[in-house]
Design a protein around this nucleic acid. Sequence first.
DNA 1: CGATTGCTTGATACCTCTCAACCCAGGTGG
DNA 2: CCACCTGGGTTGAGAGGTATCAAGCAATCG
Lengths: 236, 236
Amino acid sequence: MSIRLISHATRVVASQSVTHPSGTWPQAGTRSAGCREDTIRATGSVLLFDQDCEIYGEGDDTDIFFKVVSGVVRTCKFLSDGRRQIEGFHEENEIFGLETGDERRLSAEAVSDCTVIAYRRRSVEESASANEALSRLFLSQIMHSMIRAQDHSLLLGRRSAVEKVSAFLLECAKRSADGRTISLVMTRQDIADYLGLTIETVSRTLSQLERDGTIALPAIRQICLKNPAALRQLDA
Amino acid sequence: MSIRLISHATRVVASQSVTHPSGTWPQAGTRSAGCREDTIRATGSVLLFDQDCEIYGEGDDTDIFFKVVSGVVRTCKFLSDGRRQIEGFHEENEIFGLETGDERRLSAEAVSDCTVIAYRRRSVEESASANEALSRLFLSQIMHSMIRAQDHSLLLGRRSAVEKVSAFLLECAKRSADGRTISLVMTRQDIADYLGLTIETVSRTLSQLERDGTIALPAIRQICLKNPAALRQLDA
DNA sequence: CGATTGCTTGATACCTCTCAACCCAGGTGG
DNA sequence: CCACCTGGGTTGAGAGGTATCAAGCAATCG
């Protein structure tokens, strides 16, 4: 696994590997810190992360944030007992890692191989106040993040497993090409940690929906909605 | 129950009553709409809402948003079967009701009697691009909302009742004067709907924490943290 | 005083977690 | 080629936590 900083010239800056989900995590300030230092200087640097690579960790500096160019990123928190809660998945053109405090409250990891752009937080704050269009774009991005977070919290509260999974599937389908066929980039474990369920419950729920004829599971990472209306009903 | 528009001159504009929690809700476009029409024109109007009054409902126009001057506001969503999920509580100086879409995804209601200021969304968007300080203030408010929403979703996923209640108590205590004594403005039902639990479970959990000596419940809306460290441990 | 509201407590049912076994596809090496 | 291993996913049985239903309590209000 490696992180590659393409910047404006293509060059490899640092590489690291991570264990998952509850093993030891690379310390902030290891080789990847060199990468970060560079990106701080170079606003707009392009970075490549291999699948399951850590992009940043809890407690890291918040002076840069990111935008997804390709692939999917998850932001998540680890509890002391090893449980993981995924706060959100971030896809193409979405920003992530923007925080107000000095230290990161969450980690970010590559769900798939992915490309992201790093921005200096301060440089954008400065230029945003000078540049109206940028400021507006920026604002709408954050609003979008906020709404995603709100929807997620609504999804997690007091809803059954079927309801959660249905909502998740509809959310995925909305982003897919035909609105029916979903190609999952994330594992069942990712889905479980996103929905606040166990992997077994996610699996069982999907199987049940398949038995009901609501969905089809042609391949392990492929889901086809046969009866979206039934799912929508469960979404309440 | 009444809504009073103080605007710049003090006058009563409209009143309405609501039933709670799963009764019939006032239609958008009833007398309160008159109130809204006025506030759209008068950016910065001060409004008073009695306890349990609806400030806006799902599907309403999003052309205004609010800031809490005093009291507490809850934003929430109602599921088809009557379940209610509270997305957040909003206290003094917090903004709420700012959305990107045309229609509101949530409702907002007064938890206590409260005073709010209504702002025209467009007027702020315009002046924000002109006024740097305002723009920055605005941005930080939204970031704050986003972080609150994220924290909330982390709280709801895959955590036990004790963990949820502990986190909630610590959150409340942080805002209180001495960091130990909490004066609740919300009911047990509000807490339950915020944490994704039932009112019975919230009650039982509080009783258990009291039996453990972790908290004291001197009055029905008063909670005193006897052992905050124990709560923090549960917060993981 | 009775009625209402908010809260607490108890008994039981149900849903999801936990632990375990198993399956399957892909990769490796003899 | 096959045996073996690994990682991700599925399925089953039982345990445990929370919801549900129901009763009761205290404070408030008309």
